[in-house]
Design a protein around this nucleic acid. Sequence first.
RNA 1: GGCGCCGUGGCCAAGUGGUAAGGCAGAGGUUUGCAAAACCUCCAUUCACCGGUUCGAAUCCGGUCGGCGCCUCCA
Length: 496
Amino acid sequence: MSLRLHDTLSDQKLPFETAEPGHARIYVCGPTVYDYAHLGHVRCYVVYDVLVRHLKATGTRVTYVRNITDIDDKILARAKERGEAPTELAARFAEAFHQDLARVGNLRPDIEPKVSEHLDEIRDLVARLIEGGHAYEAGGDVYFDVHSFKDYGKLSHRNLADLEAGASGRTQGDDKSKKRNPADFALWKGAAEGDVSWPSPWGPGRPGWHIECSAMSMAHLGESFDLHGGGLDLVFPHHENEVAQSEAATGKPFATTWMHNGFVEVDKTKMSKSLGNFFTARDVYERVEPEAIRYFTMTVHYRAPLSLDWTLDDDGNVTGFPQFEEAERRVEYVYQTRQRLEEIPESRIAEDGTAPESLNLRAGLVRTLDDDLNMPQALAQVAEFLKAVNELCDAASRKKGKAPKASVTLARDGFAALEAELGLGVEEPRAILERIRDRRAAARGIEPGDVEERIEERRRARADRDFARADEVRDALAAQGVELHDSPEGTRWTMR
RNA sequence: GGCGCCGUGGCCAAGUGGUAAGGCAGAGGUUUGCAAAACCUCCAUUCACCGGUUCGAAUCCGGUCGGCGCCUCCA
């Protein structure tokens, strides 16, 4: 394995090495399920999906753990608001989350631990920290004592003195009297009257936000594991606190490599639930093929911001997402090309001849993704590959033209690699192309049946060599965005 | 205030010491009854700006300007 990844802890691009040879143990922070996934979540989990796919495609066994946070103040608040049981609300949004991510082609993690099923591990870890002198009880709460962990700040590259100086303006007015130090954080929060709570040696309450990930990652991957990932916003305080509490408890290094992805931005500002400037994945799926969103997320390096644009009408309604539309055309190109390759008849395949290197997409993707998952560069290679495949198909369709068998075989393997490495081109070409076409037609109020009728009308005109009439039909359809494609097998149509 | 990131053609975006990938848009062409699709050709002497290091810099160093993130729930 020669994958190199940018590691937040060392702030360097380093070879990714697993403690157990050939087996990568990975933990990624999952969602808090109180609402639908938005595009920021989609981007994040596509990144880790590509990481996992690439490791598997290059022969590494992967144990991919991604938690579901189903106990959280926001879930409790939202459930109360709706008069729904917190567990039901969480289960509902967890299911929606799975559906939304499956539609962009993400594989399910191997293990998806829930906080609600790890209360024992969490309480044990808290108890261990208290025993070790790293945590203290205070009025029903339990706090981690940051001064008890000398490396506090090593992940996010800041020190306690700076943190306290910076935070002072914000924390002075708050009621933080239970904490010994403003930077201390809750491991266990005591319940107020009427709150949903779980029993503990420190009284009824619920886990602090950070402790769950330490408890669950250790439960499923061991006290030390290979890679921990999540959004850039988790570096501090979430991951910093995870490092502190985990290493304080075990005395061992927690995760070896730390990977963080950049945000989706709108108007140069981070898309987030709290700012309310987000589009949910499922809303966008109504306008564009989900795979196009996957493609779009790969047009930018995973650590860089992904800036989203849209167009508005005079009333301020969203009329489109130009970047998704462009990406959708690229997705169409992927599938059209694959379909052309699959349709090369046996009689047009020649035994002799060699394949050009441009068809060796697998080798290119492996090399490129090995370099810190350089997906934009990977897409550049995909573009050159698809061009070469079309050249091959053009050659095979010319008079007396043939495609070398070696080329056809390599091209087919290229599509297999595209799926294995990037999770693109995974669907049946005809089905997805028709779906894209019909969705665009519906958006313009065009009935496929009507188009078929006009095509038949034009076919008759052409048979009579009445080309003026045939062109009238073509032009009329073109004005509605319908494009006709003549071939010896008949006429097909697509939507521009 | 502390820590950190970014500024590459009309737009998006790779590239972190060896002479600017790829996509979109645009121009011309092959093909076609005409088209579309596909393919071919062209499209940054230049990488925010100013200095410096070097045989050589978009890439390293210093400074200036501009934009953003984290420090508070957040992917």
